[in-house]
Design a protein around this nucleic acid. Structure first.
Lengths: 224, 224
DNA sequence: GCGAGATTGTGAACCGTTTCACAAATCGCG
DNA sequence: CGCGATTTGTGAAACGGTTCACAATCTCGC
């Protein structure tokens, strides 16, 4: 375990392992081998061990991993051992789904404030929160100290919101708007695009041979 | 361009290019070079050209790519040239956000039916649709012929829904439930996990040195 | 028609992640 | 205690995707 850069895929899988471990813990299981983790997660035992090796040694040869112990370690790695406050921008459909999402709690993720720019919505209740004016986001986050923001606004407003989030001190953005965000190097962005996901599925949906492109694309004098 | 396997990341990017092209088309732009695509998409020009090379030759050296022409080609590749009907299972918060999502239309993706198992919800309107009994999904899809399904139900029900979707003829599943789905080899699954995304951001949120694991994890006689 | 300039398509090099395979560690049982 | 069975942690090999670099192609203007 050399103190090196951790691959993003490893971090993504860490969250999966954590879920498996929490389920096992719920079921009263005390120990799990990498083999058993593979069974429950669909991720190979070797991959699991390699992923953990970026952070240290957590298992016992011949035995496996202590479920509660590993839960604690992964939570610490992912900074989910203390409550992680989150700013949500956009009180629309997606924002609504997020504040109502039941699984955040178990991971100590908490949407601590909701913002919108629509003055009709500002002041209204939203889940257990009240929608606040996006203009006040920096001021509000001075109290909250959130490092993570979620953008759930239309594409045309996303960049502006991103700028505001960064200014408010956020270093990680979960972006639901279908746009490329420009942010400073120290800010991490993760995009969630339903369209992208469905497009990939759409490609696989029909297994017909793809129409050959040569003719179609090289026909007319002005190209494709 | 050898008829080879297309990497998933390439398909994902294809959807991004399509969005950029549609925007450009909207703006009346007729031609775009890979360099300009890079500007708008954040994806390198070389990557763009390589991605397209899996499917044929779509550009003209010295000129670039015809915007309307390339839109048509990518739509055909992604099977978005004809309307792609989709089955949605789960009339909760996430399902609600999806039927209200405005961007599907431009990509010819249409949620053609909504299902739930809650008899209180069945028969109620949901967006422009009416919630139907999940028990009838196979029967209903015999008419619709959808190849794509979306799972927006709690984790404990997800596998059962997946089985029903497969039986109804679906070959691609977009899964919002935090579970590993077991499906036949010919079915493609894509998982969307808010928790996973936020966990990765959470890891980066604090740049403190990670607590060294040696002591913490190897202390007690029963390991971690 | 032809040369200058621009841009594509793609084999080859590169790089990071995944998989493999095995030495080292631990446990249980006689 | 010592041996066999089990499982970890990790270098090394294999793999797959990305980047590079350049020949081939095309346009434009003179």
């Amino acid at each position: 375990m050399t103190e090196t850069h951790v691959p993003i895929p490893t971090l993504e899988r860490l969250a999966i392992y954590l879920r498996v471990l929490l389920d096992a813990h719920e079921a009263g299981i005390q120990t799990l081998s990498s083999q058993e983790i593979e069974q429950h997660s669909g991720i190979s035992a070797a991959q699991f061990r390699k992923d953990l090796s970026y952070f240290g040694e957590f298992g016992k040869p011949g035995v496996g991993y202590s479920v509660p112990g590993l839960i604690q370690c992964i939570e610490r790695i992912l900074r989910l051992d203390a409550e992680q406050p989150i700013l949500l921008v956009g009180a629309g459909n997606i924002g609504s789904a997020l504040v109502g999402y039941p699984n955040f709690q178990a991971h100590r993720l908490r949407i601590a404030a909701v913002f919108d720019n629509n003055f009709v919505k500002i002041g209204r209740p939203f889940g257990e929160l009240v929608i606040q004016d996006i203009a006040r986001i920096k001021e509000v986050n001075a109290d909250i100290g959130a490092r993570i923001g979620i953008i759930a606004v239309p594409a045309h407003a996303a960049q502006e919101v991103a700028d505001l989030l960064v200014e408010a001190g956020v270093t990680g953005i979960l972006n639901f708007a279908p746009t490329i965000l420009r942010v400073p190097k120290h800010v991490h962005v993760r995009n969630v695009s339903f369209l992208q996901e469905l497009a990939v599925l759409s490609y696989h949906a029909t297994e017909d041979a793809l129409c050959v492109n040569g003719q179609v694309t090289r026909g007319g004098k002005d190209g494709i």
